[in-house]
Design a protein around this nucleic acid. Structure first.
Lengths: 110, 110
DNA sequence: CAATTTACTTCGTCTGTCAAGGTATTTTAT
DNA sequence: ATAAAATACCTTGACAGACGAAGTAAATTG
């Protein structure tokens, strides 16, 4: 059961940052890995992904550079900046808090 | 630490439905209760709340009626429909799944 | 009797997602 | 050989939800 788009909203950036924490990567690969890791539960659309890259780079959380592949199509790699690493930590903490909050608001007991 | 707006996005409706599962209520009261229950962590803005009511009523998840208060300002009460009760259950299941998914995507281990 | 609280409403703006379109190269299948 | 699929990137415009700001009106409180 694939989850609705709005559930993702606000987490695209964090998910991308998290992927980059494991090493530099490029759009296509990040998309593949996220799809794989989520077991098909989450499919980030290309437009969503690439607009997120622009946003994250604009904010200074990531920087990009063209790979120097000898073969294969050109790839634009992305790397986490120190500022981005900080942001990732904050986002992960915020996620823990969000879980608690939504859980409390949705729990059965009055 | 109040959470960012986008974190709320997509949960406003579910939170409202959950509140109504405990009995009919009206906008102002729902807002107060959510704010209280969240310990100030979540503040739904009035515009957000009332547009959500329109949306939920349009979708048939809730219905509304004017209260017949003898004193105090007029209140528009909202009630959960059977359809809305179903929706709430589905939303809560989706939330459990979302938690697992985001957790998996943000976990440290490679 | 002024200020605050209760209570509801609408409009316009902003932001993130995505459908739809595009380019270009490489690999795989026929 | 060559058609199809996969790899890899990018942009534009539409849409939906959250919210700032403003308004209305009655009741309560100081």
């Amino acid at each position: 059961m694939a989850l609705s788009a709005d559930i993702l909203r606000g987490y695209t950036d964090t998910i991308i940052l998290r992927q980059l924490a494991g090493g530099d990567s490029y759009g296509y690969q990040i998309n593949k890995r996220v799809a794989e890791k989520s077991g098909g539960g989450l499919e980030m659309k290309e437009a969503t992904l690439y607009t997120a890259f622009r946003r994250l780079e604009g904010a200074g959380y990531i920087r990009s550079y063209w790979g120097d592949e000898m073969s294969g199509a050109r790839r634009r790699y992305y790397a986490l900046t120190p500022h981005g690493r900080e942001k990732l930590l904050q986002d992960c903490e915020a996620w823990q808090e969000t879980k608690r909050l939504i859980d409390r608001l949705l729990e059965e007991a009055e």
